[in-house]
Computed example of a mutant assay.
Amino acid sequence: MARHRDADVAIRCSDLSITRASARGTATERVVDGVDFTLAHGRSLAVLGPTGAGKSSLGAVLAGTDEPGLAVVGGDARVQGIPVRRPGRAHRTLTYLVGYLGQGAGTRLPARLTVEEVISSPVTSRDRRVNKRALALRVAALLDELKLPLGMTVKYPYELSAGMRQRVALARALMLDPKLLVADDLFANLDVQARAAVVEAIRRRCDGYGMSTLLIGNDRDGIRALGAEVLILRSGHVVACGANVDDVLWTPSAGADRRLIAS
Score class of each variant (00 low, 15 high):
M152S: 08
Y158V: 14
A171F: 04
Y158M: 15
G151P: 04
D144G: 13
G99N: 03
V98D: 08
R133V: 10
R133W: 04
L180N: 13
L180H: 08
L109K: 02
P110V: 12
L150F: 09
P149W: 09
A140Y: 07
G163E: 06
D177R: 15
A169T: 08
L176A: 11
Y156L: 15
A134T: 13
G163A: 09
A90P: 00
V123F: 10
P178A: 11
R126D: 00
L170Y: 02
L135M: 06
G99F: 00
M152H: 09
A90S: 14
V168F: 00
R126V: 03
T153S: 11
A169N: 04
L174I: 02
T124N: 03
Y100K: 11
A136G: 04
L146C: 02
V154Q: 15
P178N: 12
A105G: 06
L170I: 15
L135D: 04
T107Y: 03
E117M: 02
L97Y: 13
R108N: 10
A162N: 07
G151N: 13
T114W: 02
L101W: 01
M152G: 06
S161Q: 03
L181K: 08
A162L: 11
K147D: 15
L137W: 07
R165A: 14
N131R: 09
R112N: 14
K179R: 15
R112G: 14
L94R: 09
D177V: 00
L137N: 14
L176N: 14
D144S: 11
E159D: 09
A140E: 11
R172L: 07
A173I: 13
E116M: 09
A173E: 08
A171C: 13
Q103A: 07
Q103D: 01
H91Y: 03
A90I: 05
R138S: 02
G99D: 00
L146S: 01
S120C: 00
L113K: 14
Q103E: 09
A173D: 08
E145W: 01
M175N: 03
V123Q: 05
T114G: 07
M164K: 12
A141S: 09
M164F: 05
L181M: 08
A134F: 06
V168N: 04
Y96I: 04
V98W: 05
T114E: 02
V139Q: 02
S121K: 01
A169V: 11
L176M: 14
G102Q: 07
K132A: 08
K155G: 12
R112A: 15
Y96E: 15
R112W: 06
V98H: 03
M175E: 07
L160F: 02
R133G: 10
R165E: 00
G88T: 07
T153V: 15
R172D: 03
G104V: 10
L180C: 10
H91I: 14
P122E: 03
P110T: 10
T93G: 12
V130I: 11
I119R: 01
R108K: 12
L174Y: 02
P157I: 12
S120T: 01
R89M: 12
Y96C: 12
G88C: 09
V168E: 01
N131W: 00
K179C: 13
M152I: 15
P110L: 10
